[in-house]
Design a protein around this nucleic acid. Structure first.
Lengths: 149, 149
DNA sequence: ACAGAAGATAAGCGTATGCATATCGTCTGC
DNA sequence: GCAGACGATATGCATACGCTTATCTTCTGT
């Protein structure tokens, strides 16, 4: 009864997810470096994708970063013209964050390189497996923390 | 042509794998604490599962740890009688590492708690999705780093 | 037998991270 | 109108990590 669904023995999920994440990030890092982006900077550009985010704290939360540490990253991205940080006319405490066309270009270029790496990796799977894996990964990664209790 | 295989737009794999890993580890931590185990200590017990490992460096490598940092963890586990560290009679530089029955009991108990959490999580998937996800995760997590180039 | 390699261990360094605190400007409910 | 809440920012601290160096013991090739 310890094996519901007839699932064969397997490693813990975290014991598989952690090395995979490490390997993916290790593979991303040099690609991002080529574009002059740190992991956090890239995460910010992704987080600002499309919808502008209203507050820096909200952005930090959405990308799982510390809200005080993200500030230097934003400073740098703004200085390089990749994002815009304008005071909200309706609430001058707030900085409206948005990605610039230049920022979008850079993000797209970096992401394209990353996608090439990822697709090489996924190409070893069957179409069905690839589809199911990405779909499930998407669902599980989007679950709120309390679903893991 | 940017969408081979008709794959719909999706987040980067790392952007999904990283939060999932974080959530899984966050959910594991309190379970391990109940058994008096740190994440590294648990990783060691898992790494020693079944086959005894011949050298500490090999163990460290197999669980993705630093070989100098792991020593204190081994000291602690040995002191608690959860592992054994005996000099190899054939090469007295080497410490043969093995898990004790007591260590196995503790590992099993901790793992059972973790499995309950994981199965609750996976229970929201269809049988097919669950099977494919775990199988693919297992394959990808076991790939050597150079496969990610 | 001896030089060099290998294993275990200790210690130090630079960096990243999460967490807490403090300040300052601004808003909002009463 | 003011107290308290909120957002952005800077700073400090403890922790953890990867990496390097050094030391000691033991083995191996020549």
């Amino acid at each position: 009864m310890s094996k519901l669904w007839g699932m064969p023995d397997r490693p813990d999920l975290a014991a598989m997810a952690a090395p995979l994440t490490r390997a993916l990030m290790a593979a991303e890092t040099p690609i991002l470096r080529e574009h002059g982006l740190s992991m956090w900077a890239y995460a910010v550009l992704l987080g600002l994708d499309e919808r502008p985010v209203r507050t820096q704290a909200a952005l930090a939360e959405s990308i799982g970063a510390d809200k005080t540490r993200i500030i230097r990253v934003l400073d740098d991205l703004q200085r390089r013209g990749l994002i815009e940080r304008s005071p909200d006319p309706a609430d001058r405490r707030v900085r409206l964050l948005s990605i610039t066309p230049e920022g979008r270009r850079l993000r797209d270029a970096a992401q394209a390189g990353i996608r090439r790496m990822e697709e090489r990796l996924l190409s070893r799977l069957s179409d069905d497996d690839r589809e199911a894996f990405v779909r499930v990964l998407r669902v599980l990664s989007a679950l709120p923390a309390q679903e893991f209790r």
